[in-house]
Each structure stands twice: as structure tokens, then as C-alpha cells.
Design a binder for these strands. Structure first.
Lengths: 255, 255
DNA sequence: ATTATCTCATTGTCTGACAATGTCAAATAC
DNA sequence: GTATTTGACATTGTCAGACAATGAGATAAT
């Protein structure tokens, strides 16, 4: 991304590099700064110690002493992890692991604007992903996953009919579908978008409880996914998402 | 996201709070730490000064002096922004804005695993998004956007036919389409996934130059998008993505 | 005009200190 | 004996000052 130095003309700047192929074989040397090494050491430690989400990391002083670097270096490394949501830190308490870490993890930050328009945008993107995940789930789900989907549906319908707060059951139900898609990235991104959606929604509008009218449709959704009827499952999912979208639009216009 | 504290039973822990409604009306006080305020001040400054991507931020010392906090506090705040990909910092040079910032931005970190399987997964998700973005672009693009798409196509075809490195032109071409979709979130997420894809790809396999065989198809893609023929545009896009997917699969199997 | 060198501004790291706050155990009250 | 309060301690947060490492731009040399 730092290679933004070419106007159309720059293609002609070949006077020096007589042999492009040789140059092309070179790969940029990784610039290793101190806190990157700290991060690597931390990853190694976490893997070796088998730390799980919720576990506490060693204190800054311990780490600094052990790795033989200043505490501020440790702090900066941890701060960048905090920015990426991998750890949470609490004054007086300690630092705890908030996401799974392994030597081959990679972190993708996405920035959104916190405004009403974003509601429709996040919903638009999420819809596309959910529909595809639903389609894949109908095709790929194995027996165990189908049973999980059915079970989660029952919990959802129970909560809904009892007048309880069904949102968590709803999240679990859709989570089961997304997991059955066979591509965990769908579920991960959908969840992130869902969280963002709620963050945006709750901020100006209070509690989010959208799509109540769509809950009865979930029984059909589960049915078609479990049957492996991808087309119908997609159709129902589309219907559900449309209901939510309509509600969102109504709320936005109302303001 | 911090409100994950409800087992079903916890609803019964009401012995003290006689009046739940009163309690419910309370919202948690934002815990403002020093560097959060620094971040807020920075956002304000960036908005006021109208800083754009690529612009330089004031130096750490200037910020520390101006905001009346220690330099390390400034550094930690900047570090967390760095972790979120909002700024890049260069020793000896300075700090540069790398993403759009505004007071209502929100930052979503996503973690992926860096492995061969992820290639197909990221590509799978990206495909869905690109196809939808293409469809929307064919429907929504305005005159200016159509012209931009055509112009970018010409540059791409020129680079390709001259045997130059066409990847940046390709990125710009698709960027124009994604922007024309009318939902910037598509473009943002696609770009992130694209970067991740390349990170994963380049690491074990060297230079990424996938989809060369698909470049000639881009002329049709542009044609249909500009004409507003969404169905055909989607079909061509699908074809392009399939070519890339086939190549990725071949490379993975070969190892 | 090109290249090499120098200077300086800027970020990176270290040290040491104190502040602010959550945790946990001891002390206290019932 | 049990529940509550209190306080010592550990831990993260912030500050200040110093020096190192590096990149960019100015300057000098060819």
C-alpha cells in the first residue's frame, strides 16, 4: 500500500533496473520494531501456556523483566493489542485475553460511521452475508448441525411465545446456521456487523428489539435449512431481512 | 457488548433493587481514561483541520504540550489507533492518517487465521460482497461514476496489454465499481478482505498475481455495469471470481 | 546534474517515580 | 459463625527526562 508512487508515466522509469525479474524476486524485508517482537513473544507465550479467553496475562512488570525491555515498550505492545480488541486491561486488576490468539492470526480493522445511514448500510452488507450463509448451510449442514439448528429454534420460539427477551436466543439460532455454512468467516463477520448495528442503534434510539414480526418466520427458515432446501431457505431469510429493513427505514424516517 | 451477564436466573436477583425501572433508566457512566480524551481531542482536531488520508498529524511533542499530557500518554493513544489501522507511524518521519476519521466513527476488528484454508474462505466472503456490489453499481451508478469506471478500465487494459503490473489498475477499477454501489461499506470490507487475502497469499507463496486470465473479461464487466445491465454484469463478475477461485484451489492442491 | 554527507526533527525505547483503582484477606460488627 | 467493612497490596495509568535510531531535507562534493 506504500507503493502509491506511479502516475501513468512511471512505467517508463526503467532505465536502471536492467533486469526486472531479479528485482521482482526480492521481497521487502520485514521491519521489526521492538514491540513487534514483544507481540511475537506474547503470542508464543500464550500458545505455550495454553491461555484461553478470559485468562489473565502476566503483569507488565513481569513481562518487562522477563523479556528484558522497558515497561513502556510492553505497554505499547499491549496497547496495540487492546486497540485490536485482543485484550482488555483494567487498572488495578490486570490484563485479560479477550480473543483467541495464535501465531497465524491476522487482524482486520474496519471503520464505520456512527450515523443513521450506517444502519441501512450495515444491514445491507449483513443481509448479503446472511443470505449466502443460509444458502450454504442448507447445502452443507451435517446431521449434528441440523439438530443444533432445530434445538435452537425451539428455544427461540419458547422465549418468543412466553414474551421473554428473545434476542439472545435469536443470536444463537442464527449463529448455528452461520456455523453450519462451513465457512466460519461468514459467522464472524456477521456477528461483528450485528454488534456494530446494535451499537449504532442503541446509541441514539435506546434498546434495540427489531424484527419481532419476523420471529414466526423462523420456524420455516429452520425447516428449509434442515431439509436442505436452499432456495426456499434463502427466500424466507430474505423475507426476514426485509422485515427488519422496513422497520429500520420506518424508524429513520420518523426522526 | 459488556452486557453479557445474564444467565436466565439473574432475573431473580432483584432483592435490593425494588424498582427495576428506575435502575433500567440508568446508563453506565463512560469510564473516561486519559488517552480516550486524547483520542477525542485528536478526532476534534482532525475534523477541525480537515485532515485527509495521507496528511501528517502534529508531532507527539506538540500534541503533548498542547493537550497538557505526558508524551507517553499521547503515544499510547496513537498506538491504539495504529492497532486499529487508523494511522501509520514512521520513526524519523512522522505520523500519517491512514483512514477517514470522524467523531461518529466506530472501529470493528476482525481476526482471521493465517492458513491456506483462509484463502478460500476470504475469497468466498469477498465474492459474495463483490457480486452484490456489482449488481448495485449496475443499478445505481450515476453518470460520473460510469465514466470513472470506463476510464479505469482503459488504464487496466493498457497495463495488461503492455505486460505491465496491472494489479493496482485492477484494484482501482474494482474500487470504482464498489464505490458506485452507493454503499461505501461494501468497498471498505472488500478492500480489507482483499488486503488480508494478499497478506495470507504472499506469506507462503510469494508474489500474488492471480486472475490474469480474467482480465480480458473486465471489458465486458465494465460494459454491462455502465449499461446498467445488472444481470449480465453479475454473471461476468461471477465468471471472474470463479477463475480466481480455480487458480487458488489449484495452488493449494499443488502443495 | 547527480551523488554523497550532514543535520535535524521525529518516533522508539528505557528508567524511575507517583497516582488511581480493583482484589483479596484481615478485622470488625451482628 | 456469618456478613460487612476496612485496609494493605498488586496492577495498570500517567508523567518527566534522557538518549537511540531513523528518515527527510538541506548542503556539499564530484
Amino acid at each position: 500500500m506504500n507503493t502509491k508512487n506511479k502516475n501513468p508515466q512511471s512505467a517508463k522509469n526503467v532505465k536502471k533496473s536492467a533486469n526486472n525479474n531479479v528485482i521482482r524476486a526480492l521481497r521487502p524485508i520485514k521491519k521489526r520494531t521492538r514491540d513487534m517482537e514483544v507481540i511475537d513473544a506474547l503470542i508464543e507465550m500464550i500458545e505455550a501456556a495454553g491461555l484461553k479467553i478470559g485468562d489473565r496475562l502476566p503483569t507488565e512488570n513481569e513481562l518487562a523483566k522477563k523479556l528484558n525491555v522497558g515497561r513502556s515498550t510492553i505497554r505499547e505492545a499491549l496497547k496495540s493489542w487492546q486497540g485490536m480488541g485482543i485484550i482488555t486491561r483494567n487498572k488495578g486488576a490486570g490484563t485479560i485475553l479477550a480473543a483467541e490468539v495464535s501465531s497465524n492470526s491476522i487482524y482486520v480493522p474496519i471503520t464505520l460511521k456512527l450515523e443513521a445511514e450506517s444502519l441501512l448500510r450495515t444491514h445491507g452488507v449483513r443481509s448479503v452475508l446472511e443470505i449466502e450463509a443460509t444458502r450454504l448451510a442448507a447445502i452443507n449442514a451435517n446431521e449434528k448441525q441440523r439438530r443444533l439448528i432445530s434445538a435452537r429454534l425451539e428455544i427461540l420460539m419458547y422465549d418468543f411465545e412466553m414474551g421473554d427477551d428473545w434476542r439472545e436466543a435469536d443470536a444463537l439460532f442464527h449463529g448455528a446456521i452461520n456455523e453450519a455454512s462451513g465457512n466460519p468467516l461468514f459467522g464472524q463477520m456477521i456477528k461483528q456487523l450485528h454488534d456494530v448495528f446494535n451499537d449504532i442503534y442503541v446509541e441514539p434510539l435506546g434498546e434495540a428489539r427489531l424484527g419481532e414480526a419476523s420471529i414466526p418466520l423462523h420456524r420455516n427458515l429452520a425447516k428449509y435449512v434442515v431439509e436442505g432446501n436452499a432456495d426456499e431457505a434463502v427466500r424466507v431469510m430474505q423475507e426476514i431481512l426485509d422485515i427488519v429493513q422496513t422497520e429500520v427505514k420506518a424508524i429513520i424516517n420518523e426522526r
